[in-house]
């Protein structure tokens, strides 16, 4: 164990790592379409038919080239969620997301993949549930830059109620 009478020396350090990331052919199409036209494109594997988002050139499971582009609906179903109580920092901007907020995985209609994003709903478990129908809310065209922040959040479709658990 550390002895109390000794002094232990430390030195603070900050490492700032700049990098330039190239999206590549497939993701470039999806991000450009999202930014310019507000559309979300995924790719379908010719073999297993899974519609993959973000799009990638090869299906990891079938090892074949994905070639067919599919435009997804801007609506989907919540597959999992959390109500975040931690002030998480956006590592790319250094700014915190103010808690509490709802954050979830949504499967857009037509996609096999899920997509993680904020859900614009009160941080109340009665107001959000797995299976809730949601839609994409985009930023205005002039604010879009070509990444996931072009989507402001998902919002619940109106007129839904949390299903009550069935009694066993």
């Amino acid at each position: 164990m550390a002895t109390k009478e000794k002094e232990w020396i430390s030195i603070p350090m900050t490492v700032d790592v700049p990098y330039r990331f190239a999206a590549g052919e497939y993701l470039t199409k999806t991000l450009t379409e999202l930014r310019d036209n507000g559309r979300i494109y995924a790719v379908e594997c010719p073999k297993c038919k899974r519609v993959q988002l973000p799009p990638r050139i090869v299906c990891a499971e079938c090892h074949v080239k994905n070639e067919r582009w599919v435009e997804l609906a801007l609506e989907g179903t919540l597959a999992g969620f959390t109500i975040m109580y931690l002030p998480l920092t956006d590592p790319t901007t250094g700014k915190p997301h103010e808690p509490p907020f709802v954050y979830g995985s949504v499967r857009l209609d037509g996609a096999t993949s899920v997509m993680d994003h904020f859900v614009d709903v009160e941080p109340d478990r009665e107001k959000v549930w797995v299976g809730m129908r949601c839609r994409v809310v985009l930023r205005p065209r002039e604010e879009r830059i070509g990444d996931l922040s072009d989507i402001r959040f998902f919002e619940p479709l109106p007129g839904q109620k949390k299903p009550q658990p069935s009694t066993h």
């Binding site: 904020f118 990444d147 996931l148």
Partner: peptide, 11 residues
């Protein structure tokens, strides 16, 4: 992914 979720990383 730098463009697909890093800015929203939920830890």
């Amino acid at each position: 992914h730098p463009l697909w979720g890093r800015s929203l990383a939920g830890a």
